[in-house]
Design a protein around this nucleic acid. Structure first.
Lengths: 227, 227
DNA sequence: ACCTGAACACCGTTCAAGT
DNA sequence: ACCTGAACACCGTTCAAGT
């Protein structure tokens, strides 16, 4: 019996339930990471070695489970952002953040699909505004202040550009077969670097035709109120 | 009776069948354009005013129907490419092509979804290689030859960059509600222009970390042999 | 409390029955 | 020939029955 555990935290799951929850998360990360969002909850449950019903007892639906995975990724992104801000050089910090963020996204098919347009959860996306947004904004603002990027660059620009590159990475992600010399898995970095050249401060930069979105508008766009 | 028609072209569909085919294509363009790839064939058939079975008599499956829509879009893209090549100014021709191509893609949710990563048909994608690829390659090669873009730019780069921007457009495509001042529908153009600055010839351009893919490799990646 | 798997609804696809 | 819609399989989700 685990009375003490219960007394310490009355909300804690029973140990077997907690085990199953973790097993489901692990299985989900594998299955969705490999096969993308179209993978089946039946498959996830099978890989986790539990019944489908158990998945639905721990997560109210498929989206909730994906959301839980997203939260883990957001932890990683937050770490990457903080590392970027810690870099004494504003440009290097931004570049390293983008490299790291995209490596995370490119390695997980489901994440890439979500970021490149497929809606998932409508709620719970406070994460972006509350946790990541101030950090990306700071990263962009510092680079602007030091004059290393074009003066009209914003944090939301970085988000949208990440979305674009992530879509490219999702397309080039090899589905099993080998490609001649070039490693297609890294191809997205070519476009990251082209975009970095477009971001860099340069008197030849053209004035942009459309204003950037504010953080709130971006948040609203990426996770609109439920239908 | 339509004996003459039959004699002229023995493969022609009966008039009612041809009508239904067109009705299905129109309905499909509307439904998929509005709601994206997740829209139902039942819905398309209903909007077209025919039974589901009819859809399956004209198109062997959902992918085939989407393919038929793609073919129409490819006609438009080809026209945009030819117009770009006809422009006496290499840079303007390329920019106008990209603007036009992205306007087409941004206006259709299904197209944007397809381009930003969701696989559709495995066959029939000879179109890209056979019809569009030589034209994009020529557009890029001319700009390189005239020294208006970075010397390492290829036609396949334009394709992948389009994919990225298209993903951004798909994300910002408003789903019904208004956004303050900025028109979110046009936001993708902001990123097109940032990318154009990254593409433009400039001695400060950084060497790219990854080689471009050849046309054949790109084709292989975008429409691999069947599983 | 929690677990399981049969059962239901929905959508892609097929096919027997109609014209 | 072509059209139709009921019918089947598959996957998301629920729930009665078991521990």
């Amino acid at each position: 019996m685990n009375r003490c555990v219960c007394m310490e935290n009355p909300n804690a799951l029973r140990r077997d339930a907690e085990d199953n929850r973790q097993r489901l998360l692990d299985a989900a990360r594998e299955v969705f990471g490999e096969r993308g969002l179209d993978a089946t909850l039946h498959d996830v449950a099978r890989r986790a070695g539990v019944g489908v019903g158990t998945a639905y007892r721990r997560f109210s639906n498929k989206e909730e489970l994906l959301d839980a995975l997203l939260v883990q990724q957001v932890d990683d992104l937050e770490a990457a952002l903080r590392a970027g801000l810690d870099d004494p050089d504003a440009w290097n910090g931004m570049v390293h953040y983008l490299e790291r963020a995209l490596a995370i996204q490119a390695g997980d098919r489901a994440i890439a699909q979500i970021l490149s347009g497929r809606r998932v959860s409508q709620e719970k996306h406070d994460w972006q505004r509350d946790r990541l947004a101030p950090l990306v904004n700071a990263l962009a603002a510092r680079a602007v202040a030091e004059g290393v990027v074009r003066p009209d660059l914003t944090g939301t620009d970085l988000i949208f550009l990440q979305i674009g590159i992530s879509a490219i990475a999702g397309t080039t992600r090899k589905s099993g077969y080998e490609l001649s010399q070039t490693n297609a898995d890294d191809l997205y970095r070519r476009y990251l670097w082209i975009i970095l050249d477009g971001i860099r401060a340069d008197e030849r930069n053209s004035p942009l035709p459309v204003q950037a979105l504010s953080t709130d508008e971006t948040h609203y766009l990426l996770s609109p109120p439920q239908t």
